[in-house]
Amino acid sequence: MIGEGTQSTNQRRHNYLQENVEVGFFTDPTVCIGCKACEVACKEWNEVPDDGFTWLGNSYDNTGHLGASTWRHVLFLEQDRQKGSQIVSSHSLGSGDGEDPFRWVFLSDVCKHCEEAGCLEACPTGAIVRTEVGSVLVQNDVCNGCGYCVVSCPFGVIDRRPQPLPDAGGAFKCTFCYDRQKSGLPPACAKVCPTESIVFGRLDDLRARATQRVQQLREHGYADAQLYDPIDTSVRGTHAFFLILGEPEAYGLPPKPQVPTIHLKSAWTAAFATAIGALIATLCAFAFL
């Protein structure tokens, strides 16, 4: 838990890949300080190119959203709500007396590496694969840039890289630092996170840790702390789950993510019924000639 420091799995060498252990990220915004070290470490290690310098005027967030050249994104949320047992200021200009709560929440967003991954199921070339540790990996040398994965991702994570950036046209997203994991190293973002807001480790360990952390926070006055881990949806859980304060919508996370392939059956049934209908109509037209 907090105070564990370098004793956590973030810094240890591991053998998860050889042991076929399912791994994941647990991200906890209550200890995130918004330093964006994860964004920088991710770009450094994976040699992700810069994709422009745009000031967004949205708190300290100048990244905007995840994309082909942004695999970690720190979200800055300013809300008129109380944070935990925070002392609420009563000094408010204009609105007169009374409490005036305000909180600033940071959350490092990343590819969720879904159990039922929309991108993987949509990929026609086999460029997107499931790795030994349960993560979803795009093999850029196989990807033909068709973009089916982009519209199939329930979280809007994966994207095609535009010109004139290197490797433009292909689809890119978080690789879970597969290359580092092959050498027994934790992903770059988790490794650099100074407050261990991002924790990397075995998925079962992380789920237990996350449940415990939610419990701990609730006891300390964080009434709206909850876990965002959509196990009960068609995504069937993720390999990157988040502790959030308040509703998932505020963080740009869909409350009920859906893998598009669940609509396959109904879509094909409808198409088949239409085809039969069209055939009957044609036959009828000829019958009354």
């Binding site: 920088v40 310098f53 000031w55």
Partner: peptide, 18 residues
Amino acid sequence: LSHLAKLQPEMFAEISPE
């Protein structure tokens, strides 16, 4: 450094809504 510069790319002044 592009990786740092893109995270805070422009001079700004923070002021209150009032």
